[in-house]
Design a protein around this nucleic acid. Sequence first.
DNA 1: ATGAAAGCGCTAACAG
DNA 2: CTGTTAGCGCTTTCAT
Lengths: 348, 348
Amino acid sequence: MQTKGSGPEPTTPAPVTLHDVARAAGVSVATVSYVANGRTNVRLSDATRLRVQQALDDLGYRPNALAKNLVKGTSKFVGLVTDGVATTPFAGQIIHGAQDEAWRHGFVLLVANTDADPQVEHEAIEMMREHQVRGILYSTWYHREITVPPALDSAEMVLVNCYAPGSDARAVVPDERQGGRVATEQLLEQGHRRIAFLNTTWESPARTGRLAGYRDALAAAGVGFDPALVIDAEPNQEGGYAAYEELRRLDVTAAFCHNDRVAMGLYDALRVRGLKIPTDLAIVGFDNQEVIAAHLRPPLTTVQLPHYELGAAGVRILLGIDPVPTGSVSKLACPLVPRESVASGLAD
Amino acid sequence: MQTKGSGPEPTTPAPVTLHDVARAAGVSVATVSYVANGRTNVRLSDATRLRVQQALDDLGYRPNALAKNLVKGTSKFVGLVTDGVATTPFAGQIIHGAQDEAWRHGFVLLVANTDADPQVEHEAIEMMREHQVRGILYSTWYHREITVPPALDSAEMVLVNCYAPGSDARAVVPDERQGGRVATEQLLEQGHRRIAFLNTTWESPARTGRLAGYRDALAAAGVGFDPALVIDAEPNQEGGYAAYEELRRLDVTAAFCHNDRVAMGLYDALRVRGLKIPTDLAIVGFDNQEVIAAHLRPPLTTVQLPHYELGAAGVRILLGIDPVPTGSVSKLACPLVPRESVASGLAD
DNA sequence: ATGAAAGCGCTAACAG
DNA sequence: CTGTTAGCGCTTTCAT
């Protein structure tokens, strides 16, 4: 309220309403509403239309979205509840993709980070529903199986970067298998035949999917699968560094690492031995973690998780723009990001 | 609507309203409103209170936040418009901090990534205002000077990770100078006296602030400032690697790097020469970019940018929880994250 | 102790 | 062509 009170009133100035404009233009609120919304199916004289528009501009009218949504019964909100994508370096792209796509369709993104706390998760979802969100994106910071939180029952929603086997929820996840395949193919194309795979020790879709892709590529190239070439490694620098001990005894010319961090550790191990990449060993990573991959020496060829697209696709499915059947889980391709850790000429 | 219509109605089931509950409990909506909001200052018989509560639970009543906010005239939204914090690895913590803090006070976070496009920025702000946000946080992905977008005029807002010299906007930024000081002190405490500073070439508060901090620490320790020890380096791995050429001629025992990436490059340069950290050279970085700092060999001692706190503090200022005067720019401390790239015993 | 009623700002029939 | 009116779901005096 902009009374002349001397108190420091930090509230926003004057919310000018349809009513104000109507009075100023000497017309009814309905008329103002029409021109404010640019409705052409209503017939208005150019004269009034102009006069109203003038008043609209003069007073600096801004519609109250709350009121608008109330009457329409549905808001322009899309909720995103995450267990920590905001916390994670590259998974933040899920937010980015969701926000961009939502925006593109006139929707605003409501985000809630739950840090995987079921209580917070529950409240976040309730609250979004109270705000009449059009739907909710439920996402995880790494690709995994989940069980849909009860609060999401009978809510319009789609799972992002996770999936729930039992449920009929629609989901969108990265295509780990295709990613594993494209990584391996890259090595195969350079003539490598004995390719080690430093797989993660964590049970996950990434672990099984990428392995399957690795085998797909091998099979397609007519190269036999040798289980001995699959090495368990902790999914971080230390894991990659340690794995070298095992890898050296394998007589391989290339290694496909579960992620960029493992690759980074492997780089270290090779450097200590004075070995060169890609001549002594060609390497491909996974994740395309910018800060690592693009700046390792040599820059790391890797595969990218489609986080941005995951968020965007989730919104598209939610809004019904990409129609997919109930229970479907869409897999998004993981593109190869070629750099210099795999020779461009024939290796070996 | 759950009519028996055969069409696929993906809309949420049945929005049960106050009215529904009132009828079910045989009371008026006012009464229901009272108990739904747990108002104790209104006197209601325990009997009705219980009966209404029962109906509330039975029907699974969920208030419509839109309607609630409409009548109260203000929403429970806080907007966050960023030029790309969602895009950046660690700056995503600004979102996280803002979201957590907003949540703590019953507010929801509306995010909009503008990718620094003024047009998008304008629309994002307008739209947030239409949604009657309580206030807007305007943030940048790296600490810098900005000019406040006109759309923000006369809006409740605070600048996060950026500041606008001319304006009377409140801002909250990292204390670069203190960060530079604490980093240098760490080296000084270990007995180092000739400490190189690999400063960034980018003109920025980080560049000038950290240098000032470096000098502060030197002065406090009675060590003379030698301009020759300040080396320009591109703020990435390549910059750190290249800077070694200059650094080797300097006869220093330690180096303070503008950021972790530069430190990473420097690690590489040292390794190539067979030099050891911290014995041959002690190193401290800046940013605490987890994926690098914690996993370098040895792990990197660094200074952390308080992104999470920046977001949280921004919200607190916005909501008036942390009262600060108009035009003030609060500086948040950058804590030291000690690891192993600085010896624990006396070096040199 | 409880209910009726007046809006919040806006949209959408329905009248004229 | 334009104005009147009835709500959207909820809060809040003011009666009773």
